[in-house]
């Protein structure tokens, strides 16, 4: 569906995207994962024809974005990071305008469709300047799908939404992925885990990791970290014979907080719990510490070096 070949984008001295190549299959949800400033937005802007790449090529359905932008852009539905809305229009007027701009034939039908899919009925005839941030984001999504594009590009689609809206949006993206190809960017690992079939990790404009979310997190998590809250101080000898390391131990009022780590391939949690309780120590809490994106990045960058 989309082929990007050695994309480079420079802004003066700064290289925002450095020789990035990738492709998206039909009905695939691809996630761009990376910290702020990694080049995700710039890459998406080149895919959608907003920025001209310094070098490299983008093909959408075989059509070159630089040589034939008018044709190539028809296949793409794009939701930028800040939904590009006109505050002085109503939701309906705005979506009609977008549909006209994309040359949609059966405008009324498509408007009814996006109104239903994005649950826009409550604000359909309201001015965009008067609707909430959550609805703005949904209008933005509706804008991206109103012309039934084959590729949907979403730049941080859940940013600024409340938890309920985030879940709704993720479900919507998943269902869109059944009929369209979707590219989305995020800096939240769990989000990529939930919605994407394949993830590309980008840092400083370069691809640093690629694969299914499961494979990536397996690869990245060679160790599991567990945080415990227990009744009294624990000695290392309690864990003799199993490969557990005590990373940290600190006093919390009358309890103790412990951080342990062990290799990811063995599930030692039940064993740990058993040993602690058998030693007569009360166990208040046991929690797995998921690595944050920062930690994954650090480990990835270390691997590269």
């Amino acid at each position: 569906m989309v082929e990007a070949d050695s994309l480079v984008k420079r802004f003066g001295e700064v290289i925002a995207v450095d020789n990035l190549s990738f492709h998206i299959e039909k009905n695939e949800v691809l996630g761009f994962l990376g910290p702020n400033g990694a080049g995700k937005t710039t890459t998406m802007r080149m895919l959608t024809g907003y920025f001209t790449p310094t070098s490299g090529e983008v093909h959408v359905n075989g059509v070159d974005m630089v040589e034939n932008p008018r044709e190539a852009k028809r296949f793409i539905g794009y939701l930028p990071e800040h939904p590009p809305l006109y505050p002085d229009m109503t939701v309906k007027e705005y979506l009609r305008f977008v549909a006209e701009l994309h040359g949609v034939k059966k405008i009324r039908e498509r408007l009814d469709y996006v109104q239903k899919v994005c649950s826009l009925s409550p604000v359909w005839n309201r001015l965009i300047s008067q609707i909430s941030k959550g609805f703005c984001q949904r209008v933005g999504l509706a804008k991206a799908i109103v012309h039934n594009p084959s590729v949907i590009v979403l730049d941080e689609p859940t940013i600024g939404l409340d938890p309920e809206q985030i879940i709704e949006t993720r479900n919507l993206i998943k269902s869109l992925g059944e009929e369209h190809s979707v590219i989305l960017s995020t800096h939240i690992l769990s989000e990529a885990n939930m919605t994407c079939d394949r993830v590309m990790i980008i840092n400083r404009g370069k691809l640093v990791g690629e694969g299914t979310p499961e494979r990536l997190s397996e690869e990245l998590q060679s160790k599991r970290n567990i945080a415990l809250i227990v009744g009294r101080e624990i000695d290392k000898s309690l864990f003799s014979g199993i490969p557990v390391e005590i990373q940290k131990q600190e006093k919390l009022d009358d309890k103790f907080r412990l951080e342990l780590s062990f290799p990811a391939e063995d599930d030692l949690c039940p064993e740990l719990a058993r040993r602690i309780t058998e030693a007569g120590i009360s166990l208040y809490q046991m929690q797995e510490k998921k690595p944050t994106l920062e930690e994954i990045f650090l480990s990835l960058v270390k691997e590269v070096l």
Binding site: Y50, E71, R74, P84, Y86, P87, L101
Partner: peptide, 14 residues
């Protein structure tokens, strides 16, 4: 200013 330039320039119009 309001960011709608991004939508105009990514729409399939010259």
């Amino acid at each position: 200013r309001q960011g709608t330039m991004e939508m105009l320039l990514t729409a399939p119009v010259s």
